[in-house]
Amino acid sequence: MENAPFIKQLSSNNRVVREKSLEALQKVLVSEPFMKSKQAQYEKLWKALYYTMWFSDRPRPQQKMARQLGELYSLYGTVGDNKSDDITLSDRAFLKFCRAFWKVITLEWFNIDRYRMDKYLLLLRRVFFNQLKYLQTRQWNEELVEMYITKVLKHSPLSGSAKVYNGIPFHLIDILLDEWERLVSKRDDEFEVEDEITDAEEIANLVKETPLSQFIEIFTDLRKDYIVSKGIRNKIKEDLLSDERLVSWGAIPVTEETAENDEEEQEEENAEDEPEAEWKGF
């Protein structure tokens, strides 16, 4: 991977060159030497893949490219022991590849113009889905899930840092439950699936077997942190935590205590919005 021409080919403005390089990359990603590479090598790779998407034009090729780039994460499910309780070499490579994507997309987000934004939103959706899919392939290994949450999501896209443009956490808030439902129901946004699960009760039971509540906790923590921008906190409350699916899936309980907390937070927010009374002196 240290070979510069290979990186340049992935970010070539020639479609044929990009596609051949992407095909060759699949073998490199799961090779033992590359899986043992340092984090910087993964970041160089994702910087090249970022431009692979950049030069992809027209809706159909963009959809195909977003899908192909997202499915690179699934390659790690084809090597190693998916039933192992220990963190494997594939797991560590997967985590480094995850961190690389979020770091690159966070740094480059400001440079994405409005004409290219839609395809990068799609890329983010496909990548996030396939990252979750790998965790599912690993049977939601507790240690791996915890590492993914702390070393990947909380490290960058959902860190609450002002350095992360709001568009990234906003989009994650928008897609989290949809992609989680798609994951357990085996639904595909582009193709028909014969064994797709459509029964709402069955989907709810399947979701209950997943660690969705741990992911929701990331957002509840962000909502309680008043250093985080008010826009993000409001969106979490209005577009995520108010979603009825969370209750039916058992990911968030509805209690009198939570209702009281909501009222208290609303009062605090209203107080923030009220203009200070003018001081007229003694």
Results as ranks from 00 to 15, higher is better:
R116M: 10
W46N: 05
W180D: 02
A48L: 07
D178W: 07
Q62M: 06
D195E: 09
S37M: 09
E238F: 10
K224E: 11
M53F: 03
D113K: 08
V28H: 03
N82Y: 05
V193N: 04
L183K: 00
D86S: 14
S229V: 11
A277L: 13
R125Q: 11
T88P: 05
F128I: 07
T150E: 13
I236S: 02
N130T: 10
A48Q: 03
E142D: 14
D243M: 06
I203A: 03
L25W: 00
L172F: 03
G77F: 02
E269L: 15
K36W: 06
A271K: 11
T210D: 03
K64S: 09
R182C: 11
R99L: 15
Q41N: 12
D91W: 05
W102E: 00
L132E: 00
F34L: 04
E196L: 08
R233C: 09
L183F: 00
F191E: 15
E256K: 15
E274Q: 13
R233E: 04
K36N: 11
R245L: 09
D243L: 08
E194C: 09
W140T: 02
K280Q: 13
D86V: 13
K64V: 12
D243A: 10
V164K: 06
S248Q: 08
L95G: 02
T255C: 05
E269N: 14
F6Y: 08
K47W: 08
D178S: 14
M147Y: 05
W54G: 01
V16K: 13
Y76P: 04
R245N: 11
V16Y: 07
G80C: 02
N234R: 15
R99Q: 15
K280D: 13
K230S: 15
V152D: 04
D273G: 13
V247H: 09
T220R: 06
R245S: 08
S74Y: 05
R58C: 10
L29I: 03
M35Y: 05
E267F: 13
Q63G: 01
L72R: 04
E194F: 11
I227Y: 10
A93H: 01
W249F: 05
Y115K: 15
F129T: 01
E217A: 15
T220W: 00
F128E: 01
V30W: 06
A251C: 08
I173H: 04
R233Q: 06
M65W: 07
W279Q: 09
V104H: 06
S242D: 07
N111A: 12
F6L: 13
W46R: 09
L45I: 07
G250V: 00
D178F: 11
R114I: 12
K151T: 14
F219P: 05
R99E: 08
S56G: 07
A48S: 06
Y134S: 02
K64A: 09
I112S: 03
F191T: 15
T106A: 13
E268M: 15
L212Y: 00
Y76H: 01
C98A: 10
E264H: 12
T52F: 10
L206E: 06
E23K: 15
A162W: 12
F97R: 03
I149C: 04
K36S: 11
E146L: 10
R138I: 03
I168R: 01
